[in-house]
Design a protein around this nucleic acid. Structure first.
Lengths: 250, 250
DNA sequence: CGAGTCTTTGATGCATATCAAGCTTAGTGG
DNA sequence: CCACTAAGCTTGATATGCATCAAAGACTCG
């Protein structure tokens, strides 16, 4: 009985991961079941704003089951930079920061599960050639690519380009998850948070969003945003935001 | 005979990797030998400025045996951003960029070897618990950490802080390799390249380096740079640059 | 010794930060 | 149901860090 309810619970928790993996490469029923079997720990709930404890030694990796998470750094004088966002289906790895200057916190209410077993499973010999491991490989490559593009964004794009590019990236990720349809996506981010992702001040973030609205590219509202002109955004971004093959969700 | 000379050559090619791994965790004689046995392909030479071909499918990973390599992106209007530097001992992974907007090129004359076998070896079951794999894990963690810090650097540090931080990072990496002694390090980077790492213009890069010299923190010259005041630089950087445990090279 | 690649310097402009204040919205308690 | 509050959004004025442009010195190398 406990097992049964657990199985149901796990299936729900891993749903975003299954969907995202399948968007990179078909993983088959076996792949799907292997994913489900790899998560058995108790889910942890964190309220919006809470820190997510990431012990670099134990507790190596956590799967985001629902909610949005920010990984970032805080300087002594209060400046804050968000390094990346983790959405449902993403796996967060402890950065093992020596000085603990890297933080992970919840942007919304969040549910996470320990992913160490999953991590290990995909490093095992048999997994090396499976369809699942191929999807996982592409998924990790996409993550590295996103990080690389975050560097380019901050280093060489202006505020307008940065914003367009970030919105396209978040759009692609949500299309993979099946939570965005035709440019409409769920964005539970305040302009403050957006600014900390893009290395801007909150004031300038606001003005940049207004500019995008004036040019009829984006209609931004907290929680519910509409990309009105995808090709226009791609042109405005000046940098590709595509992160891998995209097999549309069913 | 061929085998014998090959063995000698391979030992030399992998030397930086062995040293760097050992700086993160002791790898033992077996680890060292496993590293040496994992590289058998012909070394490739590239002159300074040449592109390093990185086929995302085959040719997954390459070890830098000597020379400096830049990974970066080029925008259509000529803006360039270097995402990271690869030094001897580093392994470059194909980003599998869909749009091929990410490039890898040689900053100096360079020798690389295919590292796919090495990569695979360390994913095998037996390797999971070996000292070598522990060193490798820490090494990869350090790389992720460096990338994260590059984001913070570009997003929230000013030119002065960025420069101090980058120099500290390069210092640490060379201390690991045993190629830096007491603040003196080898920097085969033009100010142009430094600017493209730090997201600055070459002119401002120059002025920032002068400022560091005036404050007696750094004596910069292409090819040979001296960090005159490490604690001062750490303070100026405003962000930790330490990337992992540091076991001093023998 | 000439030609290219780097570095340095000065003058000017712009993108973005900062400061300060009003406004809007949603949630809370009386 | 209505103050009351706090969080977020918006706007204007001002300041500044860095880019850009232009040109002149330093090096290096054939």
């Amino acid at each position: 009985m406990k097992n049964q309810s657990d199985a149901g619970l796990e299936a729900r928790l891993t749903a975003p991961l299954e969907i995202m993996l399948a968007s990179f490469a078909p993983i088959g029923i076996e792949g799907r079941d292997l994913v489900r079997r790899s998560f058995s720990g108790a889910p942890q709930h964190q309220p919006s704003g809470a820190a997510i404890p990431m012990d670099p030694e134990r507790n190596q990796a956590r799967l985001v089951a629902s909610g949005w998470i920010a990984r970032g750094a805080m300087l002594n004088d209060g400046r804050r930079q968000i390094i990346g966002l983790s959405l449902p289906g993403d796996v967060i790895v402890a950065s093992g920061s020596v000085d603990a200057d890297l933080l992970v916190w919840a942007l919304t209410d969040v549910v996470t599960v320990d992913a160490t077993a999953f991590w290990t499973t995909l490093s095992e010999p048999g997994a090396q050639a499976s369809p699942l491991s191929e999807a996982w490989r592409r998924c990790r490559t996409a993550e590295r690519l996103r990080m690389a593009r975050q560097v380019v964004r901050l280093g060489r794009l202006n505020a307008y380009e940065r914003t367009a590019h970030l919105l396209l990236e978040l759009h692609e990720r949500q299309v993979r998850l099946g939570t965005a349809r035709g440019g409409a996506l769920h964005l539970p981010l305040t302009q403050d948070v957006l600014a900390d992702i893009l290395g801007l001040s909150a004031v300038h973030m606001n003005r940049t969003l207004q500019q995008l609205r004036r040019n009829v590219l984006v209609d931004y509202r907290t929680g519910r945003t509409l990309l009105q002109d995808l090709p226009g955004l791609v042109q405005a971004a000046n940098l590709s935001a595509v992160c891998g093959p995209l097999i549309p969700p069913p």
